[in-house]
């Protein structure tokens, strides 16, 4: 577990979860009323106006993201293991994966590894399609989250995501969970909700994804690398390939890296504007 968990716990309990949801509902109601009026008035040009209304109501304080230096990645996959340990994801669900030669075959025999969490896009294709608004981009920090209690499990977001960053929880368990060992009693800290796995209960039957370990944020929404409150993959990366931080802060490590090197993002042509950049 994380070295500073006790400390983290306190902050987790007061994560602005409830406020979030209330605000979200409020926003949805407003958005709904606005859209309905627009729909009645002119019918067709609904989506852009609805988005403009939503955009007007948001002001993003942080823009969290990653810069992954592929030259430093050795393909050890400890980010995947760390993520599993942190989020207690079931079999078949891995919030980050390490893909070999994700940019296609390359000359020579040196593979290019790509660690691929959710990109928390600026224009997410996934949130747009959710029929119930269960997955959305948080206005305070741009993290794309899923409200497990609202999600109906239709998996449309998995279909829409161009990066295959989303996984469905089929309800399968590792033996340690299904045999009801002590491990089964340890909840997942995800979203600060501390759920244990119960048959038929969320997140089983939901879509799941990387949250940039937002349960490790303090009440201000800040991470603290020195205190260990840092996304598990970035914290554990053996080659220090995964750099995490706030792109809104021009002095952050990630901002400086973007300025110094030539970054690339996957599938720019789709206009999703990922917040995870790769350095080749």
């Amino acid at each position: 577990m994380t070295p500073d968990l006790d400390n983290a716990d306190e902050t987790i309990v007061q994560t602005p979860r409830a406020v979030d949801r209330r605000e979200m509902l409020d926003r949805l109601v407003k958005l709904g009323a606005a859209s309905l009026a627009v729909a009645l008035a002119c019918g067709s040009s609904l989506a852009p106006i609805a988005r403009a209304a939503a955009a007007g109501a948001t002001s993003q304080k942080y823009r969290y993201g990653m810069v992954v230096d592929t030259k430093r990645c050795v393909g050890c996959k400890s980010c995947m293991v760390a993520c599993k340990a942190e989020n207690k994801t079931p079999p078949g669900v891995s919030y980050t994966v390490v893909v070999e030669n994700g940019f296609g075959e390359r000359p020579g025999d040196r593979p290019l590894f790509l660690t691929k969490p959710c990109f928390h896009c600026q224009e997410p294709a996934c949130t747009k399609v959710c029929p119930v608004g269960a997955t959305y981009k948080r206005k305070q920090d741009g993290i794309v989250v899923i409200d497990y209690d609202r999600c109906i499990g239709c998996r449309y977001c998995i279909v829409a995501c161009p990066y295959q960053a989303r996984y469905f929880d089929f309800g399968e368990n590792y033996p340690a969970t299904s045999d009801k060992t002590a491990y089964a009693g340890i909840p997942s800290p995800e979203y600060g909700q501390f759920r244990t796995r119960e048959d038929g209960q969320s997140p089983i039957g939901n879509v799941r994804k990387c949250t940039f370990c937002l349960h490790l944020q303090d009440s201000e929404g800040k991470y603290d690398k020195a205190a260990g409150r840092w996304p598990a993959c970035a914290k554990t990366c053996t080659g220090k390939a995964i750099h995490f931080g706030d792109f809104n802060d021009p002095q952050s490590e990630v901002s400086l890296l973007l300025a110094a090197r030539q970054p690339v993002r996957l599938k720019e042509e789709l206009g999703t504007e990922p917040n995870v950049y790769y350095l080749l």
Partner: peptide
């Protein structure tokens, strides 16, 4: 939920 939590951008 589709009726009570509408998302107007979802086909």
């Amino acid at each position: 939920h589709v009726l009570v939590y509408p998302n107007f951008t979802s086909p």
